[in-house]
């Protein structure tokens, strides 16, 4: 079978959580040897490569100052030059994988399938995977013709990390093959997210509201409930996109990671980018008018209700205690 590679994202000398998830996913392809490929420069890169050799039989290191920051346009060029054209390459479906994967598949003339949540296996050159559509409301089986290679991005958190660390692998320096890395996009700087007045990452109890609240004026009932419960208000992304609440209240992959004891999701469908921001295994209560909403799959307790009616009644009850 074609060679399988896993692209390792890293920061400050430490590999991302996805690194060991990709190792686990690669096993589902039936590959006996998976190669990690790591780009970057200097001591941080060396540290990550050394670390990865515990989990991957072989680690391909591509060291170049042009990749000190992982600019996908630059990394793409290096990968096209270094990787065999017909390989299977696994990437995390995060903001870097989304940036790199589609264009890389074109330049390698490979098939592309993204945001994979499960791998059913590889039969001959046909890869069978599971994806989701409509924000998780429907799942699909997909087939991918990997005959000329494939780039596959995997949803973070969907594959249990392979923690065995028994690969005893070796690091192979491929820096000489990286080729011309000039690009028409230049990384300048990273601007940190704004800090808000409440720090939802420290809250024990979060009353979280989503698009189901329908109107900005209706937010008052959510704040009233939070006050009665002595909880803080957080939200899903559409509420921030609409500028109804500050970004510092957004839970999710592009917002904050929270770890409360109790999380109430109200009028939130349960997209993985939202749920990905809820950590520490809290007690999750979901209130949604749609009994099929994906949030009910991750919640401990569910209530099928119209939040516009339910929330005020709940607030009244709590106030009367």
């Amino acid at each position: 079978m074609a060679q399988v590679f896993a692209y390792i994202t890293h920061k400050g000398g430490a590999a991302d959580d996805s690194a060991l998830e990709l190792a686990a996913a690669a096993k589902k392809l039936g590959a006996d040897a998976v190669t990690a490929v790591v780009t970057g420069t200097g001591g941080e890169l060396d540290a990550v490569c050394k670390d990865m050799a515990a989990s991957y039989k072989e680690v391909w290191k591509i060291d170049n100052a042009a990749m000190a920051y992982p600019n996908a346009e630059v990394v793409r060029k290096a990968l096209v030059n270094v990787l065999p054209g017909d390989c299977l390459l696994l990437l995390p479906h995060d903001t870097f994988g989304i940036d790199l994967g589609p264009g890389l598949s074109i330049k390698m003339n490979s098939a592309y399938v993204s945001d994979v949540v499960a791998i059913d296996g590889l039969e001959g050159a046909t890869l069978k995977v599971v994806r989701q559509e409509f924000g998780g409301a429907a799942s699909t089986h997909m087939t991918v013709d990997t005959g000329a290679g494939a780039v596959v991005t995997l949803r973070p958190g969907s594959f249990a990390a392979d923690e065995s660390k028994s690969a005893g692998g070796q690091v192979v320096d491929k820096s000489g093959d990286a080729g011309d890395l000039t690009a028409k996009r230049k990384y300048l700087e990273t601007v940190a997210a704004e800090v808000g007045d409440v720090d939802i990452t420290k809250s024990d109890v979060l009353v979280s509201v989503g698009r189901g609240i329908e109107d900005q004026d209706n937010l008052q009932i959510v704040f009233d409930l939070a006050e009665a419960m002595k909880a803080d208000v957080s939200c899903s992304r559409p509420i921030v996109d609409a500028k109804w609440l500050e970004k510092s209240r957004q839970v999710g992959t592009s917002g904050l990671t929270v770890k409360p004891k109790v999380y109430m999701a109200m009028g939130i469908s349960g997209a993985f980018q939202h749920v990905g921001g809820i950590k520490g295994n809290p007690f999750i209560i979901a209130i949604n008018k749609n009994p099929k909403a994906p949030i009910f799959q991750v919640a401990d307790v569910g209530i099928e209700a119209n939040i516009l009616e339910f929330i005020p009644e709940l607030t009244e009850k709590i106030k009367s205690l």
Binding site: Y112, A138, S139, T140, H141, M142, G302
Partner: peptide, 23 residues
Amino acid sequence: KVKRVDYFVPEMGAGAEMLEGST
């Protein structure tokens, strides 16, 4: 090269315990 075979509703774990009854 990439084809959708079907749509399905995945068999999930337990999922949420739904609270029933009057409001």
